[in-house]
Nucleic acid binder design. Structure first.
Lengths: 170, 170
DNA sequence: TTCTGATGTTGACACCGCTCACATACCCGC
DNA sequence: GCGGGTATGTGAGCGGTGTCAACATCAGAA
């Protein structure tokens, strides 16, 4: 039990792989996450990940589910007026996570029940806080769109612009 | 001079490569565009593309620029009320093109002047049609966000929902 | 006509996701 | 305590990718 003598079995490789993938995701975005590099970071052979995830997409789905839980918790308790800016700031602070969570992977979330459940739970808070379903969708759409436009460089990611756009006069 | 005897030189390989990439983009999305497959489609060796594009990103940038020109032309002449639905329907009809044009590639468009110029020109129409710059950004953000949410399966891509959300009562 | 630059080809390298056969270590029933 | 079954990790290898360097071919100007 002394130190890290690198035993044959890792202990909690699944979590270690998710952590490594997370690091890569935050550093280099979605495309920087390679199964082989993730394994390398966890100090394990390239194919070890397949004992814990069916394939790369399953690993990414598990990661996205984890982030949806965190995201929902961070957004849930807030008053409506704060949710927009919080949503946008999360996207700008963690572009990789945001793109992963809301990217094309979400479309296939029916094949990843944990993801589907986590995203549903996180997004329920959005609907609950709005005066009407349609108003919720319009607000969500606007905030989500501004996030993408800023992440992709179509709009400057300035704090001043965020507060101005999300606080219409009147 | 009979038929297509496959001469050593292609004639207009650059355009042929862009066309092939376009087909792949529309069929399988961004990830389905591989330089080797594009070359295969154009009936040319895998590395021939490098005589016309610095790398894969440059090819995609050229493609995105082409689509921005087309997109701007299609949107330009319309009255303001039609622009939102048109924008959204384009995204839903051509997800690959939409994701490419507005994806992370756009952020690096400073390295691809043709892309930067094409996107600026296309998006100028959006600003021009709105009553105020902030109103333009809010409307753009909402439409853009709804497009992404529908493409990624977070919202159903129903025509009825589109018209309802884009035509607020009153 | 010659030769020079543009265009296309071949072969190779490193990396990727993934599969199969094999090695190792833990745990449960005896 | 011990053996065996199972979970976990390893290694070699396949087909795919983007990219580079060296070479082949052709068109057009000198």
């Amino acid at each position: 039990m002394s130190t890290s003598e690198k035993p044959y079995h890792h202990g909690d490789l699944r979590a270690a792989l998710l952590d490594a993938a997370d690091t890569l995701l935050d550093q280099g975005g979605d495309g920087a996450v390679s199964l082989r590099e993730v394994a390398r970071m966890a100090g394990v052979s390239p194919t070890a990940a397949y004992r814990h995830f069916a394939d790369k997409e399953a690993l990414l789905a598990a990661l996205a589910a984890r982030h949806f839980a965190q995201f929902g918790a961070a957004l849930g308790g807030r008053p409506l007026a704060e949710m927009g800016p919080a949503y946008l700031r999360f996207a700008l602070a963690r572009p990789g996570r945001f793109r992963l969570m809301f990217g094309p992977l979400l479309q296939r979330s029916r094949q990843h029940p944990a993801l589907a459940q986590a995203s549903d739970a996180a997004l329920a808070g959005l609907y609950a806080a709005a005066p009407s379903p349609d108003a919720a969708l319009r607000a969500w759409g606007m905030v989500h769109g501004l996030a993408h436009l800023m992440l992709d460089g179509a709009l400057p990611a300035e704090e001043e612009l965020i507060t101005r756009l999300l606080n219409p006069p009147g």
